[in-house]
Simulated assay, not measured.
Amino acid sequence: MPIDEHHADFVTAFARGLAVIRTFEHGADRLTLSQVAARTNLTRGSARRFLLTLEALGYVTQDGNSFRLSPKVLDLGYSYLSSLPLWEKAQPFMKEIVDTIDESCSLGVLDEGEVVYIARVPPRHIYTIHMQVGSRMPAYVNAMGRVLLAALGDAELEDYFAALQPKKLTPRTITSVAEIRRIVNETRDKGYVITEDEVYEGRRSVAVPIRNREGQAIASINISAMDSRANRETFEKKFLPLLSNAAQQIGQSL
Rank of each mutant, 00 (worst) to 15 (best):
I3C: 04
D4E: 08
T12E: 15
A13K: 13
I21D: 00
E25L: 07
R30W: 09
T43K: 08
F50C: 13
F50T: 15
E55V: 02
D63N: 12
R68H: 12
V73H: 01
D75P: 00
L76V: 15
G77L: 05
G77Y: 11
G77W: 09
Y78S: 12
Y80L: 13
Y80S: 08
Q91N: 10
M94T: 04
V98R: 03
T100D: 12
V109A: 04
D111S: 11
E114D: 13
I118Y: 05
A119C: 10
A119S: 15
R120E: 12
P122W: 03
P123S: 07
R124I: 03
I126V: 09
I126A: 13
Y140Q: 02
Y140N: 02
N142T: 09
L149N: 05
L152F: 06
Y160E: 06
F161V: 07
L164G: 01
P166D: 06
K167S: 10
T170R: 04
T173P: 00
N185K: 11
K190F: 03
E201V: 07
E201Y: 06
V206W: 00
V206R: 00
A207S: 14
R213C: 07
R213M: 09
A217Y: 01
I218T: 02
I218C: 05
I223N: 00
M226A: 14
M226W: 10
S228V: 07
R229N: 07
R229L: 12
F235V: 01
L242D: 08
L243K: 00
S244T: 14
Q248W: 06
Q248T: 10
Q249F: 05
G251D: 05
Q252W: 10
S253T: 08
